[in-house]
Design a protein around this nucleic acid. Structure first.
Length: 671
DNA sequence: GAGCACTGC
């Protein structure tokens, strides 16, 4: 699963020195000199160059941790932290958690001896709250920076500031693509300016490392296609009937396309000459239950060629062995955020050159491969170099809250790697203001704003949770908040029938809506015993997700305890009537204090209308109000897909509560 | 009436 290849088992273990075989070994001295003499070093390394595993070891051996400081290596994904740290620990012949460790949410495998620490970029951002200058680190390496994730972009901005205060810190930015100059330019002092006595040219440098992957032949269409799924199926059948052995990986944009494609392949297999090998199509996308995901990693049966039809998950998150042929339709589904309507959209977008290159590289991991791009060469030339940064297409409320908590005053003038559109910033500040997280002057409020920033929850949910003690429903809201972080993964259909799943949903349903239904799911799960995976299967629940909810709830409880907010013995459990108000109503009211800006009313045709009345919304099919009637509701999430706007996780409320808990917000709106 | 690209704290 890790980015770096496993070496084959050596015959003579004393001769086994795989790191020396990596292209990066030849550059060791040049690299160390660059890092020694420049605050910022940009590493341009192809996959398999060994940068992630080797650079931290070079630094470790050359004394960068001798004074007790650590080397941090950030990764965008948890799986990379665990797998790469294990690899490095074994190369240093030390148990994981000693000199080499990793730290991800819920798992801190480090000790006082740890010198090389792999950490998710989001977690390092959290660490900056307690250690703003990252004093415990002598070097911070930001890996996969070219992916331009929200947290790695923000981390780079903050590191730029830290570098101005710490002449001893070294930052290494690893990027796989063409945008090395851009990163360098971002860190460098202005023309004529000096930082720690260094001018623009002396401040940073770029080191390129060649990859070790096998060659991949690229093929293009001579004419563009208007049906890439059909074209993909044609290509798959062509490869299967004309090309040598080797599995096929085909990139499509989503679940529906993948299902269609697999159906079409199944139709074509029937007509194939029986002399050909078997062709086994397998789907792969994040929403697929993990037991079904496992098939793609298993070796194909005798006389069978696997063809994996995948989303972008196979581009960087997951590595499948023995892929020799890659089919790239040239599109990806990307999230976009509409700051006017506050709606997230999933748009099918052309991939970037960086993505296309990464996809092609998936064919050359075990031997020379081929990549079929289902677009023209001119089409490729017309693609963007890199993926549109996430910071320019997201709801910025959570990240702005976090930046403010780190002491950033001016969020408009902040030194972003790419400036987010001002509309996104304005919308986010608007929301934070209406929630009471910031005051009239745009300053974080105390304690509400700072507390919201500290919780690893979106602002609306954080607000509702922090209000829970005043409604006497803290225990319930802790559970609901934990269940919300599962983002709809609590229920899963293990069989193909959706009927079973619907029946299970109904088993837990209550009239108040989806939030308290999920609360019931959690309560039942802990009461039957958290280890009972069979009970989960029987009830169409995702056992792993439920275990995660338990961890998240515990973590949230710890955060609140540190803030001096504790679950009292009186609350929760079976007590359904406290202080004359039903527990359901307490939760409904409490949710309203966080989600008042996301209120809607059901019309007679079953669709919903927002308060402003400009958009028609539909209950997501996973909601109990997909079938049932309701009046006013608040919703957790709003997402547009295929032209229809869906709201998810709905709870009924009284209209009066909106003006009761958000008088300012609704006064302004009405005029 | 019928669905979530992918991560992360």
């Amino acid at each position: 699963m890790a980015e770096e290849d496993e070496e084959s088992t050596p015959l003579l273990s004393e001769l086994y020195k795989p790191p020396a075989l990596l292209p990066i070994a030849r550059l060791k001295d040049q690299l160390l000199y660059a890092i020694e003499t420049h605050p910022v070093t940009i590493i341009v390394g192809e996959t398999g160059s060994g940068k992630t595993t080797q650079i931290p070891q070079f630094l470790y051996h050359s004394g960068w941790t001798n004074d007790g400081s650590q080397i941090a290596v950030t990764q965008p994904r948890r799986i990379a932290c665990t797998s790469v740290s294990a690899r490095v620990a074994s190369e240093l012949e030390t148990p994981l958690g000693q000199e080499v460790g990793y730290s991800i949410r819920f798992e801190d495998v480090t000790s006082s001896k740890t010198r090389i620490k792999f950490v998710t970029d989001g977690l390092l951002l959290r660490e900056m709250l307690v250690d703003p200058l990252l004093k415990r680190y002598s070097v911070v390496m930001v890996d996969e920076a070219h992916e331009r994730s929200l947290s790695s972009d923000v981390l780079l901005s903050l590191l730029k500031k830290v570098l101005r205060k710490r002449s001893d810190l070294r930052v290494v930015v690893s990027s796989a693509t063409l945008d090395a100059e851009r990163f360098l330019d971002f860190f460098a002092p202005e023309e004529g300016e000096k930082i720690h006595g260094l001018d623009r040219d002396e401040y940073g440098c770029i080191v390129s490392i060649e990859g070790r992957a096998h060659p991949v032949d690229i093929f293009y269409l001579s004419e563009p296609t208007n049906d890439y799924i059909e074209r993909a199926v044609d290509t798959i059948i062509d490869i299967h009937t004309k090309e040598a052995d080797g599995d096929i990986l085909c990139f499509l944009t989503g679940r529906e396309e993948i299902d269609d494609c697999i159906d079409m392949i199944a139709d074509r297999i029937v007509d194939l000459n029986p002399n050909f090998k078997n062709l086994q199509p397998l789907p792969l996308y994040a929403g697929l239950p993990s037991d079904q995901q496992m098939y793609v990693f298993e070796k194909a049966a005798e006389n069978t060629r696997k063809v994996i039809i995948a989303t972008n998950i196979a581009e960087a998150s997951v590595t499948i062995e023995n892929i020799v042929y890659v089919i790239d339709v040239g599109y990806v589904k990307l999230r976009a955020y509409d700051p006017i309507l506050g709606i997230e959209r999933l748009n099918i977008t052309p991939v970037s050159k960086a993505s296309a290159t990464q996809r092609a590289g998936r064919a050359g991991r075990t031997r020379a491969g081929k990549c079929y791009r289902l677009y023209t060469e001119e089409g490729f030339e017309g693609l963007e170099d890199a993926t549109f940064p996430e910071i320019q297409r997201s709801n910025l409320a959570p990240v702005l809250l976090q930046l403010m908590n780190l002491g950033i005053q001016n969020l408009i003038r902040f030194d972003y790697l790419s400036n987010p559109p001002s509309k996104l910033i304005v919308r986010a500040l608007d929301l934070l203001f209406s929630l009471g997280a910031i005051d009239d002057y745009g300053r974080l409020t105390k304690p509400l704003g700072t507390r919201m920033a500290e919780l690893p929850l979106e602002p609306m949910l954080a607000k509702a949770l922090l209000n829970a003690p005043s409604f006497g429903c803290l225990s319930e809201m802790l559970t609901i908040a934990a269940m919300m972080t599962l983002q709809g993964t609590a229920f899963v259909s293990h069989s193909d029938t959706t009927k079973l799943l619907e029946r299970s949903r109904r088993r837990f349903a209550v009239k108040e809506g989806d939030h308290i239904t999920l609360y019931n799911v959690y309560q039942s799960f802990v009461s039957v015993g958290k280890k009972d995976a069979q009970w989960c299967r029987d009830n169409c629940l995702n056992h792993k997700a439920m275990i995660k909810a338990v961890s998240v709830r515990k973590q949230l409880e710890n955060y609140l305890e540190r803030m001096g907010i504790q679950e009292s013995a009186l609350q929760g459990g079976d007590v359904k009537r406290v202080g004359g108000m039903e527990m359901g109503e307490k939760v409904q009211r409490c949710l309203t204090t966080g989600y008042f800006a996301q209120a809607a009313r059901m019309k007679s045709d079953g669709s919903f209308q927002t308060v402003g009345g400009e958009t028609t919304l539909w209950a997501h099919p996973s909601s109990m109000f997909f079938h049932r009637k309701a009046d006013w509701v608040i919703y957790h999430e709003i997402l547009e897909t295929k032209g229809k706007v869906y709201i998810r996780d709905l709870t009924t409320i009284e209209m009066d509560w909106l003006t009761e808990y958000a008088p300012e917000y609704y006064k302004v709106k009405k005029r």
